[in-house]
Nucleic acid binder design. Structure first.
Length: 443
RNA sequence: CGGAGUGUAGCGCAGUCUGGUAGCGCACUACGUUCGGGACGUAGGGGUCGCAGGUUCAAAUCCUGCCACUCCGACCA
């Protein structure tokens, strides 16, 4: 992308409403625009990041055996009356009437709807296990939205729903998703620790929140230090290996870890003092097993091996990609701007033309830029006729993992500068050598 | 929903107490000089002062009502 033809509305002054660093940087980098309290437009740079997070989330969901669908944002109240939640959900649910005065709602979650889909088609235990997910906008009319997209009213959520014949099978579905979540957050460069959690209005009796430790986190959390060094399940994990996943989850839940609601001071006190971590955390994922809470009232049953109809055991599993954008910035930034993980960065590298209009510099940049595109990289080419300082500042702010700095001085010696955003390491190398650093990228 | 604030140009702010032609910095436009870590000069453009009433010769400023947004608390992917 040529910056001169892009839409990247950067701000030099920080809007006063932005309190936390991720919100400030998202506004300054032109990623989002607030439209109302807790409601945001996603501008090109922000959308790129969101899409890249979604891609990782999808890959790991698919790997675990979940199947993607897409359900609507607007739902019928009737469906929610079946589960009893239309009354129970309260003012957080945005209720709407259509032109025929039918009661509708903007979905805060999709248990009812996915259960309806399930009961409409699935008749036999032989079709289980089944896990359906979608990535869709949700609306929860929070009393007090804050921290930008960290706690918006409208937010993007990946929500998966598992259907199994009995509790033991559902437990394995839970473990599959648990494992997928560990992988997802690790791929995003985040250390997310699963913590026993309260189940809230979703219901059920088995639930974990995945918490990223961060100074600006909303909740107080307590855990064993060893979790920070636990290894991530590998990509070739066998998601059908019941015993293997059970062992994995047992290990990841063997040590103390709890949010403040579930905190047990005595149990935490039993952890050796130098292993106690008491910190703040950002909830980036939440998984639940809730048995037949929805399948029973809504009649989601299948025929078992004995021919009898039995309600299916369900679980639901949420990740907030829009919140993850903020969490990633909280975890990766410095004074100059955002430092993205390579896989999530909106652009893989920025080519900085330090003297746009200079024939030799322009030619070198063009050559570099086209070659990078041809190799499948998302390259950003800063071809604006602007001062070098402004270009460095822009590149630092938006956080491309690499900067390739091309100017007349370097070119006179046949060199360009390659700079790593994360550590700031720089080296002067030939244009060809710089290009060789970025091999063909798989689509 | 309780408490505290803020609404003046795209962003950050002054002006409001004490009513009298709407300002500053950045950004934007034009020209010139600059150019390896957010330059400088000159000349410009851009505002129903959140909205609606009221008081007054005169309202950004005073009064009343409303709306929006932010922060602290209780609640939450």
């Amino acid at each position: 992308m040529r910056l001169s033809r892009y839409f990247l509305p950067l701000l030099r002054d920080t809007p006063k409403d932005a309190e936390i660093v991720s919100h400030r940087l998202m506004l300054r980098a032109g990623m989002i625009r607030q439209q109302a309290a807790g409601i945001y437009s996603w501008l090109p740079l922000g959308l790129r990041v969101l899409d890249k997070i979604n891609r990782v989330v999808r890959e790991e969901q698919n790997r675990s055996g979940a199947i993607e669908i897409l359900m609507p944002t607007v739902q019928s109240a009737d469906l929610w009356r079946e589960s009893g939640r239309y009354e129970a959900y309260g003012k957080e649910m945005l209720r709407i009437r259509d032109r025929h005065d039918r009661e509708m709602l903007y979905g805060p979650t999709n248990e009812e709807m996915v259960t309806d889909i399930f009961r409409s088609y699935v008749r036999s235990y032989k079709d289980l296990p089944l896990n359906l997910y979608h990535i869709q906008w949700k609306f929860r009319d929070e009393v007090r939205p804050r921290f930008g997209v960290m706690r918006g009213r409208e937010f993007l959520m990946k929500d998966a729903y598992s259907f199994d014949i009995d509790q033991a099978a559902a437990r394995h579905a839970y473990n599959r998703m648990f494992t997928a979540y560990l992988r997802t957050f690790a791929r995003l460069g985040l250390k997310a620790i699963p913590m026993r959690a309260d189940t809230g209005p979703i219901g059920g009796d088995l639930s974990h929140e995945f918490i990223v430790l961060a100074a600006t986190g909303e909740s107080e959390v307590f855990c064993h230090r060893d979790y920070l060094d636990f290894e991530t399940p590998p990509a070739d994990t066998d998601f059908d290996d019941v015993a293997g996943l059970r062992g994995l989850v047992e290990r990841w839940t063997s040590l103390y870890a709890a949010t403040s609601e579930m905190h047990d001071a005595a149990a935490f006190g039993a952890v050796p003092a130098d292993s106690r971590v008491s910190a703040r955390g950002i909830e980036v994922g939440h998984i639940f097993y809730f048995g037949t809470k929805y399948s029973e009232p809504m009649g989601a049953t299948v025929a078992g091996p004995d021919g009898q109809q039995t309600p299916v055991h369900m679980g639901s599993y949420g990740i907030g990609p829009s919140r993850l954008v903020a969490a990633l910035i909280e975890a990766g930034h410095d004074e100059a701007g955002i430092i993205w993980p390579d896989e999530i960065a909106p652009f893989d590298m920025a080519v900085l033309n330090l003297k746009a209009g200079d024939a030799a510099t322009d030619a070198a940049c063009e050559q570099l830029y086209r070659a990078l595109l041809a190799k499948g990289h998302d390259a950003l080419y800063d071809d604006r006729d602007d001062r070098p300082g402004a270009k460095f500042a822009t590149a630092d702010l938006i956080g491309a993992p690499w900067q390739i700095i091309v100017g007349p001085k370097g070119l006179a010696e046949g060199k360009v500068e390659l700079k790593r955003r994360a550590g700031g390491e720089r080296e002067q190398i030939s244009l060809e050598a710089a290009l060789a650093r970025f091999p063909e990228k798989a689509a």
